[in-house]
Design a protein around this nucleic acid. Structure first.
Length: 585
RNA sequence: CGGGGCGUGGCUCAGUUUGGUAGAGCGCUCGGUUUGGGUCCGAGAGGUCGUCGGUUCAAAUCCGGCCGCCCCGACCA
């Protein structure tokens, strides 16, 4: 491609509303342009990198038996009503009506359509297992898009769907994806780890997320340096410190004026936070059939622990949780800052599983400026649910080995879900076994966001001058710069490199050397060639890698073979990083 | 959805406090100059100051509504 006709320009300065490094660079280098919040156009360079990432995904999913298909972006709402997701998912799901006033859905995922295909195409166990996938646009009307492609509303996703007759088959395909995903990320030179994850709106029984560790990441991860336990904080478990065993003592009301926080309470009464009970009020949206009902939920934890809203939502099978308003809390007779489950009616009480083993806690009296001493679960109040609803934190004990957990931030670049029969029962997607008995197909679903992956690669591979693409995903392999006195020779080199099958971005513009070098650094193509009077006088073409300072001078007649060799070396370097990863889960 | 910030040529911003009819740099066009790390000089094009309404002789500037964008939180590839 000749840069004189390339349909994009570099920007000297980043647009003011880009804060994240990858976002700034992708805009400045002319890979992306914004259309509206969370929606972007891909310019030629961005499109080429995205296509390369997609091709890597294609190859790796094909290698584990995937068959590429393409499913529609617009679905009839009726199909989503069958699986209930029409009712369960909120504003994130794009909805509109067609000309006949029929409800329509913009695809945010394709489990429903796969299930619909299944009930049409698959009747027999002989047709299983199978694996289908596509690479296609999704619309998720994210409440808060941010950081460019890291979190957008419209994005392209590679989503695959495994179809099996039994759990063993699902396990096999799940593990195959686990390795394929590491292969994909390694081929993109993006370091990632897998973590145990919540199943979220996909449903199902098991999920892993693939995380690129970075400060800009929005997920908190808990990691054990000793045994390798890794989990998203949403669902991470930990060994809870045990309270001293003591006999329950009688409840005692004490005056605690102006003491609304656990911190203040522990100080005032001179007890550790673990001897207090914390009350958290939330409103949970529960589905009863197709109807949504909001219920006030009272979560009780020990004062030294934080609530995991994900764990709580899972315990209640709630579709949404939000903090309760003060009026809603007072309406049930509780007093914010002095609340406790003692004596409350008409709320759903969920108690963390550390509470029954923690006797004689300090809890609110549901009366301004008073707390109760020696509150005991079972004797003084009951719960609707007793379950682990506490969030693990840095410093907590690893659930497996007891070592100290550390915390990191990560960007979720991919995930894999064991869906089981979550979608196939509702839709009647069944097959007949050898005995003619019908069973629902067992599904898994597996997604990687193309744009987010591209942004993470950009986030990982850049320096003060611009992007530094790994050769596997670089928009071009070679950036050829023509300078004064070298245009003719460069034109010849350009043709010969192309004839040899190399991908070349040729800067044939009438610009000063400084502009060209700066643009080359900004765009970040891995191999740079410079042809000018000076290089020709010294004997040929200057060859330099984007990541390195020093350059080499290569005679004109050797340039094609040298570049081919260098290109191969760069590919080999990345291939060396594609390794077997033992499955942990 | 809660909190904060911002909307002025393609981009970065000044001008708003104290109303008087819009500016700089970059980019773009033309001419010259320069030519190995964003040359320099000159000329030029380009803006209903997000939008609607109000106050006023007069509004980018003051007041109100709406829209959009960004950041922080609750949520996701």
């Amino acid at each position: 491609m000749r840069m004189s006709i390339l349909f994009s320009q570099t920007l000297r300065e980043a647009p003011a509303d880009a804060e994240v490094r990858s976002h700034q660079l992708l805009l400045r280098a002319g890979f992306l342009r914004p259309l509206m919040a969370g929606v972007f156009s891909y310019l030629p360079l961005g499109q080429r990198t995205a296509r390369k990432i997609e091709q890597i995904m294609r190859e790796e999913i094909d290698a584990i038996g995937g068959q590429e298909i393409e499913m529609p972006v617009v679905h009839p709402a009726a199909l989503w009503q069958e699986t209930n997701r029409w009712y369960e998912i909120g504003s994130e799901l794009g909805r509109f009506k067609d000309k006949n006033d029929r409800d329509m859905v913009l695809a945010l995922s394709h489990e429903e359509v796969v299930a619909d295909l299944l009930r049409r195409e698959v009747q027999s166990y002989r047709q299983l297992p199978a694996l289908v996938y596509h690479i296609q646009t999704k619309w998720r009307d994210d409440p808060r898009p941010r950081a460019g492609l890291i979190r957008s509303r419209e994005f392209v996703m590679k989503d695959s769907y495994s179809l099996d007759r039994d759990q063993d088959g699902l396990d096999r395909q799940y593990r195959a994806h686990y390795q394929a995903y590491f292969n994909i990320f390694n081929r993109c030179a993006l370091p990632t780890i897998s973590v145990e994850a919540d199943v979220g709106m996909m449903g199902g029984s098991m999920a892993h997320e693939f995380m690129y560790l970075a400060p800009i990441g929005e997920d908190s991860l808990l990691l054990c340096g000793n045994c390798g336990y890794r989990a998203n904080r949403q669902i991470a478990v930990f060994q809870k410190s045990l309270a001293e065993l003591e006999d329950p003592r009688p409840i005692e009301k004490v005056s605690t004026p102006d003491t609304k926080t656990i911190e203040g309470l522990a100080n005032l009464l001179d007890v550790p936070k673990s001897r207090t009970a914390k009350a958290v009020f939330l409103v949970a949206t529960l589905t009863e059939g197709q109807a949504k009902v909001d219920k006030l939920v009272f979560a009780v934890l020990r004062g030294d622990m934080d609530l995991s809203e994900t764990k709580l939502a899972n315990a209640l099978e709630a579709k949404a949780l939000r903090p309760a308003q003060e009026e809603e809390i007072r309406a049930v007779g509780a007093v914010p800052g002095y609340a406790s489950p003692v004596g409350l009616n008409g709320v759903i009480v969920v108690v963390d599983d550390a509470i029954p083993d923690s006797p004689n806690l300090v809890a609110g009296a549901n009366e301004e400026d008073y707390h109760l001493l020696n509150v005991n679960y079972g004797r003084d109040y009951q719960a609707n649910v007793v379950q682990d609803i506490a969030a693990a934190s840095k410093g907590d004990a690893c659930p497996r080995c007891g070592a100290t957990l550390s915390e990191s931030r990560g960007v979720e670049v991919g995930n894999i879900f064991k869906l089981g029969t979550r979608y196939t029962v509702d839709t009647g997607a069944t097959f007949s076994d050898e005995d003619g008995i019908e069973h629902p197909v067992i599904m898994g679903s597996y997604g990687i966001g193309v744009g987010r992956l591209m942004a993470c690669i950009a986030e990982e591979h850049n320096d003060d001058y611009g992007l530094r693409w790994p050769i596997t995903v670089a928009p071009y392999e070679v950036h050829l710069v023509a300078l004064r006195g070298g245009f003719e020779a460069a034109d010849d080199v350009y043709r010969r490199l192309q004839d040899a099958g190399l991908e070349v971005l040729f800067d044939d513009r009438d610009e000063s050397p400084g502009v060209k070098f700066n643009d080359a650094d900004l765009i970040g193509v891995p191999i740079r060639l410079t042809v000018g009077a000076r290089s020709l006088d010294s004997g040929g073409v200057e060859l330099k890698l984007r990541g390195e300072k020093e350059s080499a001078l290569v005679p004109l007649d050797e340039i094609v073979s040298r570049v081919q060799q260098l290109r191969q070396d760069l590919f080999d370097d990345i291939a060396a990083g594609v390794v077997e990863v033992p499955f942990e889960g």
